[in-house]
Amino acid sequence: MNPSGAIAIVTGGGSGLGEATARALAAKGARVAIADVGMDKALKVAEDLGGIAVKCDVSSAEDGDALLATVTGKLGTPRILVNCAGIVAGMKTVGKDGPHSLDLYRKVIEINLIGSFNMIRLFAAAASAGDPLEGGERGVIVNTASVAAFDGQMGQAAYSASKGGIVGMTLPIARDLARSGIRVCTIAPGIFKTPMMAGLPEDAQASLGAQVPFPPRLGEPAEYAALVCHIVENQMLNGETIRLDGAIRMAPK
């Protein structure tokens, strides 16, 4: 799909991987809607890109419906969805304070996994109603998993489960949506310079980056965004999860 003139929704688009993706798509001519719970940053990014910002808790059916209604009403039929919204939480299955909090586990699953599926189902319904483009294509969905889906470390039971679920649903959803001309891919990033990572001391960031075989550094959000753009533009990419990690395989801790 040619991003130029296409309407894109980026969840978690106010910062990090989502912001970089929104900017990359806009640079290719897409009209971008930034969906985020933090509106200050989302509004700034939307203003920079000439897009719109919509407050949205991705795990809420009501917020999702409102987001799609706003985007469709203000911009038109969406063609691109990039799911970047998510949270990270660490807790061992049994720690010094007792068993893992069930509420925390549920929250991570609800936001990362259920939130991604919520956006997928609503976007797909809207995109399916659009006219087919070249090759019969109507839409492209890019989800964000993590290498933790495959190499989960200690304390990452909830996070790994949520990201593993995203990997696991990629192919069946791609098969579900094939008749509508909607492609679905997932990116599993390694260690990237996200706002969470930026909060660490520089020596800690350098130490983490050195664990990557090559290149021995943290990933740049722009590199994630570049892969999103390639997935959008390459019609044969469908039903696949792509590790973007410099060949790292995470140690147990």
Rank of each mutant, 00 (worst) to 15 (best):
A226R: 11
A178N: 05
L17E: 03
R121G: 06
M250E: 06
G152K: 01
L67N: 07
M1T: 00
L43A: 14
A210Q: 11
A225C: 07
I242T: 10
S128N: 01
V10F: 01
F123I: 09
L122A: 14
P78K: 01
A148M: 03
G168I: 02
K107S: 10
V37D: 11
I114Y: 13
E240Q: 14
A53I: 06
M91K: 10
A20E: 11
A27K: 11
M169A: 05
T241M: 02
L81K: 04
D40Y: 01
G219T: 00
T93K: 05
E202W: 02
H230F: 07
A225W: 14
L227W: 03
V32I: 04
G155I: 00
F123R: 07
N238V: 01
G12R: 04
K163F: 03
R217G: 05
G76R: 10
M196G: 13
R243D: 02
H100E: 14
G155R: 10
G209Q: 07
E202K: 09
A6H: 08
A157T: 15
A27T: 12
L49M: 10
D57R: 11
A61R: 09
A66E: 09
G168N: 08
P78M: 01
K74Q: 15
L81V: 01
A26W: 02
S116V: 10
S101C: 05
S128F: 01
A24Y: 04
A33S: 08
L17I: 02
V71Y: 08
G13I: 00
Q235V: 15
E220W: 03
K163T: 02
G12M: 05
M250D: 03
P216N: 13
A145L: 04
P172R: 03
G13T: 00
A30F: 03
A42Q: 10
E220N: 07
A222V: 00
A42N: 09
K253F: 15
E223K: 04
P216H: 13
R243P: 00
G155S: 12
M1A: 06
A46T: 03
G38Y: 11
V94C: 09
A61Q: 12
L171S: 05
V167R: 13
T144P: 00
